[in-house]
């Protein structure tokens, strides 16, 4: 009786762990593993219809406009753009020229109504003085008015 119990426990334990692991794998695979699609993919009609999805890209310079409680901005991957409207609290790192991932649905007029806005930052860590130096060097090298941090 006891060895059989042990074997049963073994099988149940292994099955549970495999199931839990598989569940998470499937959850991740559910949206093709990618967390978001790009504005170019949206323009190509790859966005799901009548279903919430995420778009990732850069917040276009000078596009952020606040109308009462709603924030309007444009998310871009430098090739295509998607206008976004969002009502709610923005994360600390949300800024023009920085990466963002927005979740929501496309309305009939092509405006993306976001229910959640996440900020995406890059892997660079440096003191502010170093960043100023880089900005200065870049604007001196390529002329004023160039977009910095074009990579979302």
């Amino acid at each position: 009786m006891k060895p059989r119990h042990k074997r049963a426990a073994l099988i149940v334990g292994a099955l549970i762990s495999i199931c839990v692991a598989a569940m998470f794998v499937l959850r991740a695979l559910d949206s093709n593993i990618a967390l978001y699609i790009t504005p170019t993919e949206v323009a190509a009609g790859k966005a799901p219809v009548d279903k919430a999805f995420r778009i990732g890209g850069m917040v276009k310079m000078g596009s952020v406009e606040r109308k009462e409680l709603t924030v309007h901005f444009i998310i871009t991957d430098t090739a295509k753009e998607v206008p976004v409207a969002y009502t709610g609290i923005l994360p600390d790192l949300f800024n023009e020229g920085k990466g963002a991932v927005v979740q929501g649905k496309m309305d009939a007029k092509g405006l993306f109504v976001a229910s959640e806005v996440l900020a995406k930052h890059d892997e660079n860590y440096m003191p502010p003085e170093a960043q100023h130096a880089i900005d200065k060097a870049q604007s001196a090298g390529t002329g004023a008015g160039t977009e910095t941090g074009a990579k979302p």
Partner: peptide, 9 residues
């Protein structure tokens, strides 16, 4: 604080 969410999939 940075992304605006505790967790994403």
């Amino acid at each position: 604080p940075m992304w605006g969410t505790w967790w994403v999939w």
